Simulated scan of single mutants.
Amino acid sequence: MSKRIVVAEDFNVSRKVIVSILSKLGHTVLEASNGLEATSFFNGGAIDLLITDYNMPEMNGAELIKQVRASEKYAYIPILLLTTEVNEQKIKMALDENITAWIKKPFQADEFLKIVSKALR
């Protein structure tokens, strides 16, 4: 079943790889190059999953997650956080926002797909 997925990732190559993987599965993928841009997709329409990088310009992933979770409509959607971040304080801040899973970059496509499939159940 096709899902609507928002992908917020500032690194163009990573974003295109993720979009390609998800599109091949038949999902509708909405792309954003930063957290601020991604907020435009959370306008009352159906969103089934948010996949966001942590470190981005304009608005980082933690700020995006906080804003999405503040909306009653999107408070419980699954959120996957992609990152190379190792700072424990930043990791804790993201986990405190009730993310669904933390995915360390670089990731293997098959492991990524397992996590996405589980999040979309």
Rank of each mutant, 00 (worst) to 15 (best):
K90M: 13
K114C: 07
S71I: 04
E88D: 15
N87G: 04
K114A: 12
A62R: 10
V6D: 05
Y74A: 06
G61A: 12
G44N: 07
W102L: 14
E88Y: 14
F41H: 09
F42T: 07
T83K: 09
L50T: 11
A101V: 01
V19R: 15
L30G: 01
Q67D: 14
Q108P: 03
A46M: 15
R69L: 12
D96Q: 13
M1A: 12
K3L: 03
G35A: 09
Q89S: 15
E88P: 14
N34V: 00
M93S: 13
G61W: 03
G44P: 05
K118Q: 08
T52C: 12
S117A: 07
P106C: 05
H27M: 01
S2H: 11
L30P: 02
R15H: 04
K104N: 11
S14Q: 15
E58N: 03
N43K: 08
L22D: 02
I91E: 10
L113I: 06
D48C: 10
M59Q: 02
G61S: 15
A101D: 11
A109V: 14
V68W: 06
L120Y: 06
D110V: 13
E31L: 01
F11M: 13
Y74N: 10
L25W: 00
E31K: 04
L82A: 00
M59K: 09
S2L: 11
I103E: 02
M56Y: 07
T52A: 10
F107D: 06
F112K: 09
A109G: 09
T84E: 09
I18C: 00
E88F: 14
Q89P: 07
F42H: 02
A70Y: 10
K24N: 12
K16C: 07
W102G: 02
Q89G: 13
I65N: 14
S20R: 13
L36S: 11
K3S: 10
F41D: 02
R15D: 05
I21K: 05
I47H: 00
Y74M: 08
P57I: 05
P106Y: 10
L22Y: 00
K24W: 10
R4S: 04
G35Q: 05
I77L: 07
N34L: 00
E58Q: 12
T100V: 06
G26F: 02
M56A: 07
G61P: 12
A101K: 08
A8P: 02
I21N: 01
K90H: 15
Q108H: 13
S14M: 15
D53A: 01
N87Y: 03
R15N: 07
I51C: 01
L49F: 06
A101N: 07
Q89K: 15
D48N: 14
E31Y: 03
A70E: 14
D96M: 06
